[in-house]
């Protein structure tokens, strides 16, 4: 790749990645948009060590909150939040609750149909 020498673009498109130290997270496992992020008890001890955006993530995830919702509430692109969340997870400050991956992969058919029944029941009782 020759893109390293690319001149910096101006404005909002690039700025968000300054909060991640320029990392785009391409090297990290992709956290699903709807994955729930949850602060651990450790998070509040470590909170002061993090920059503003990461500290806000700790605050917002006292109650489990989806990755995509963190991005919206912080007004930061999803990719940048992925990097911050991955950092927080590696420091033990948050846990990531992955969504079920469907019938073709991890969940066997019985578990998946069971999950769908619960979802259906939940929607009907709204």
């Amino acid at each position: 790749m020759i893109a390293v020498e690319e001149p910096e673009l101006e404005g909002k498109l690039i700025r968000p990645y300054t909060i991640t130290g320029g990392r785009t997270g391409d090297d990290l496992p992709l956290i699903a948009l709807e994955a729930l992020i949850s602060a651990t008890p450790t998070a509040f001890r470590l909170r002061h060590q993090f920059r503003w955006e990461a500290a806000r993530i700790i605050d917002l995830t006292r109650k489990e909150t989806a990755l995509v919702e963190l991005a919206a509430r912080l007004d930061v692109p999803v990719g940048a939040v992925r990097v911050l969340v991955a950092d927080l997870a590696s420091r033990g400050a948050v846990t990531i609750i992955d969504p079920p991956t469907g019938i073709a992969t991890t969940l066997d058919g019985y578990m998946y149909t069971n999950l769908l029944r619960k979802v259906l029941d939940g929607i009907r009782s709204l």
């Binding site: 729930l36 969504p99 991956t101």
Partner: peptide
């Protein structure tokens, strides 16, 4: 990865 789905205390995210 998907094992969290069976943990009763934790919420499970699903999407449409």
């Amino acid at each position: 990865m998907g094992s969290e789905a069976s943990n009763p205390g934790r919420p499970t995210p699903v999407k449409i």
